[in-house]
């Protein structure tokens, strides 16, 4: 059991109508990994995450999560969807929204929050640095604050693995670095799988990288190599990352600051 990968995707294909979204994708995330999947928009990144979460059924292949099916295990996953999947004008406070992430752990009927749930919500908001916003309505928050609230909701269930879909999209640049540090802190405590189209956000703590554009390219290391990028992006490598096979983040940070 302990040897099982946290996430084990084998030979997964997904098609929407006649358009293939994923083709024969393998992905193995081990305990403690900080795994980044990069790839262009429309390359199937969100689809892959939804397959792992059991929200989309693959037409071929198998998915195992923590030794079980996605359906059996997904309540042990902390999921940060690509933002704006719900309505921010919904009348709910940050505290209530974060707390709702515990509902998957409350078995009784009717579902009522217990002391431990309230404590977990406080901890999660503390971790994400939004404890002072607990009483605020979610539509009153900035993009970055909303994103932290969404991550806090994912953390509140004490997940074994955290799955993040484009976590940096709505985070403004000044807070971006602080935000990355937060994520890096989280990856010390749990397995993290992150997808992004923006190579610039990759932290130096990423332990494995894959490139995904319908098909997946990886060496199961933290190195992004030319063949992976060419496979995923179908364009000359030096347009995307410079001086390969160096770590990508450091390069980008230097280049983007005048």
């Amino acid at each position: 059991m302990s040897g099982d990968p946290v996430i084990d995707v084998r030979g997964v294909s997904v098609a929407f109508g006649r358009r293939p979204a994923l083709e024969n994708v393998d992905l193995r995330v081990e305990k403690g990994d900080f795994y980044a999947v990069i790839g262009p928009n429309g390359g199937g990144k969100s689809t892959l995450l939804k397959v792992i979460l059991g929200l989309i059924r693959p037409s071929e292949g198998t998915v195992r999560v923590l030794g079980g099916t996605p359906f059996e295990r997904r309540h042990l996953i902390g999921y940060v969807p690509q933002y704006r999947t719900f309505d921010f004008s919904y009348p709910v406070t940050v505290g209530e929204m974060v707390l709702s992430g515990r509902l998957g752990h409350i078995r009784g009927f009717p579902r009522r929050y217990r002391e431990e749930d309230l404590a977990a919500a406080d901890r999660a908001m503390e971790t994400m640095g939004i404890a002072d916003l607990a009483g605020q309505e979610i539509c009153a928050l900035s993009g970055g604050q909303q994103q932290r609230a969404i991550i806090a909701r994912a953390l509140v269930g004490d997940p074994e693995v955290l799955i993040l879909d484009e976590p940096m999209v709505y985070v403004d640049t000044p807070t971006g670095e602080h935000f990355l540090n937060l994520l890096t802190g989280l990856c010390r405590q749990m397995t993290v799988l992150l997808v992004t189209h923006d190579i610039g956000v990759l932290s130096s703590r990423v332990t494995k990288v894959a490139c995904l554009n319908r098909r997946i390219f990886t060496h199961e290391t933290a190195e992004i190599t030319g063949d992976m990028l060419e496979g995923a992006y179908h364009c000359p490598v030096d347009l995307i990352a410079h001086g390969l096979p160096h770590r990508v983040l450091g390069e980008h940070e230097e280049k983007e600051r005048p």
Binding site: L55, R74, I77, P81, F86, S100, G104, R153
Partner: peptide, 23 residues
């Protein structure tokens, strides 16, 4: 509504996340 208040909240607020929580 009083018995299912939390469930209705979860589903009306974010159906996808409610699914992930196995509600």
């Amino acid at each position: 509504v009083s018995l299912f208040f939390r469930d209705f909240f979860a589903v009306t607020f974010d159906e996808e996340y409610a699914r992930v929580m196995n509600l």
